[in-house]
Design a protein around this nucleic acid. Structure first.
Lengths: 336, 336
DNA sequence: ATGAAAGCGCTAACAC
DNA sequence: GTGTTAGCGCTTTCAT
């Protein structure tokens, strides 16, 4: 079997207590003894049994995470940010993707708690209404990514979604667009907030919002095709928008390509902005200006907040955090 | 603190042994007792302490995984497949992304082993040469994704990379392409294998391979731009390829767009095939035929293989597994 | 500076 | 069917 503290103690005629002290870097061990122990540990390739340590100390140095999907790039970048911070703290991330199934989510949360994770990070799906009951009563720290579900008072890290819409509008206003079309995406809370930000920014500038130029995504359609078809219609109209803002980069790419196909010049006649800043999409064709959602930074903030919550055991002094999106200028909007 | 077996035992005037038996579904408990215990467990919202169980049984029901990156869609889909299988087996996946840093990789492997994971899944980076020493000597089962590094004899699940090149060629041959350009990507083992498959298939058909039509990816260039520029040059040449096969979908997209920009018709004059089958790329513009790398299926196979390895404790009867890629026909190649 | 004793929560192997 | 004993590998506490 694996090497234990006891084995090293036997080898060196010490008690396992001394070995344990060396292991944890306690100072009340003579330098000489310490050196001998470390040497032997290396020779035997000793690895402490974390299960045993956890049982004793109540800490596992594991954090559970529940996400709707791992193949969504937004999620992947958030996880990357978390992983980066955890790595340097010797924390491990136990991930489960629940694919929007509330029952699976509940079970995975239970499993994580059974594992005695030191904290839980929850990235709710688009339907935040079915937040697992367990999360509201557990004493394990929970950190939410994105707005914390209603009725729950836990810290969260989220993007100021309304600013996504605002920044896009401001960017275009500065470049003298005045007639905005908005591809608002699905009917979710996040999409609603961005839309609100868009509306406020346009109205704040004293401009009107044309209801006929607001488009929702059809549930099962390809986003690219959706954006394409919308823009086809817009391009054929008597009056055309000179700025198109889209909820995703793919919608924007579709709109861009339809505009080009209709003989319009981008960015001179129509400017286009996406969101997500997905390089695979933004860097193709006439490259797309896009709103970067700061996913990695969100991930890092989540990780730091989580670690702090773990440290302070109980006292919920830690407040929620919000971040701003950033615009990435590319060819689909004018330079100046 | 949390509820323990002992608490339930006290409540019900039973020994904790009986509770433990109910917990694990042993049959030598009377139906009535069992019912009482289950009821009380539910009332108290009891959750077994898995650290304690692990210490006792030596099993953690956790599997460690080391990947180069989580934001690479290929990796994300593999992880998704694994997660899917593990979920139904109540196994958890502890993931760490190491970003191509061999030292970090080694440390993360050690950490996983410290955690007593029941197995380790390793997805080596493009530089497979620095496989952590530890992996060669540990008794913990290791399963590789992709070819197992040289000198290591562990089971692995991998894609028959040579078939990626072959299938693409066959697909085009059937559609009467005869003059192939090949965007072979970087100088990695995987890219080499695909290239070999390409060469064999072309030569096997009695056709010649034009060395001037084989292109490598420049390390720090955008893939899309790389593909675009190559195709620009090809389109300007006296003799043009009528089939372009690319190592990635982005390269293919670049080539496609350059061909269109040069006034060529796709697929009538030039057919284009990518690999990866990344919907974000393939479903834009003239949609791209692409080789699907079966990532999710690889993930599921990896997970099943891992579970089997865990069960059979030691006896390495489990053999490696290989999978074939599949072509996804879209507009960039002819229908018939 | 070193060590002995106790116990974290659970389960394997046996009694009864 | 139910309970007793022992111990997984580690750390906490307290002696020495």
């Amino acid at each position: 079997m694996a090497i234990r503290l006891q084995d090293i103690a036997n080898d060196l005629n010490l008690s396992k207590m001394t070995i344990s002290k060396v292991l944890r870097g306690q100072t009340d061990v003579s330098a000489e003894t310490k050196a001998r122990v470390l040497k032997r540990m290396k020779e035997l390739n000793y690895r402490p049994n974390i299960s045993a340590r956890s049982l004793r100390t109540g800490q596992t140095y594991c954090v559970g995470m529940v996400v709707p999907s791992l193949t969504d790039p937004t999620v992947a970048f958030i996880v990357r940010g978390i992983n980066e911070v955890f790595r340097s703290a010797d924390y491990s991330l136990v991930i489960s993707a629940v694919d929007g199934d509330a029952e699976v989510e509940e079970r995975e949360v239970e499993l994580h708690l059974s594992r005695q994770v030191d904290a839980l990070i929850v990235l709710p799906g688009s339907d935040a209404s079915n937040n697992p009951q367990t999360l509201t009563i557990t004493t394990t720290p929970v950190v939410y990514v994105g707005p914390c579900p209603p009725r729950v008072s836990q810290p969260s890290v989220s993007l100021r979604e309304d600013e996504v819409g605002q920044i896009a509008v401001q960017h275009l206003l500065k470049r003298r667009s005045k007639r905005f079309a908005y591809l608002r995406g699905p009917r979710t809370a996040v999409a609603d907030q961005r839309f609100t930000g868009f509306l406020e920014a346009v109205r704040g500038a004293g401009l009107a919002v044309k209801q006929e130029w607001i488009f929702e995504t059809q549930p099962n359609e390809s986003e690219y095709r959706g954006g394409f078809e919308v823009m086809q219609r817009l391009a054929a109209g008597r009056l055309r928008p000179d700025g198109v803002i889209a909820y995703t980069d793919l919608l924007a790419a579709g709109a861009r390509d339809a505009a080009i196909a209709a003989g319009l010049h981008i960015p001179q006649q129509v400017q286009v902005i996406g969101s997500g800043n997905l390089v695979e999409v933004c860097e193709t064709g006439i490259t797309l200006t896009s709103i970067d959602l700061s996913c990695e930074e969100i991930g890092r903030k989540v990780a730091r907040l989580t670690l702090r919550r773990i440290e302070e055991k109980g006292e919920t002094s830690v407040r929620s955090v919000t971040l701003s999106p950033k615009i990435m200028q590319r060819q689909s909007t004018l330079l100046s």
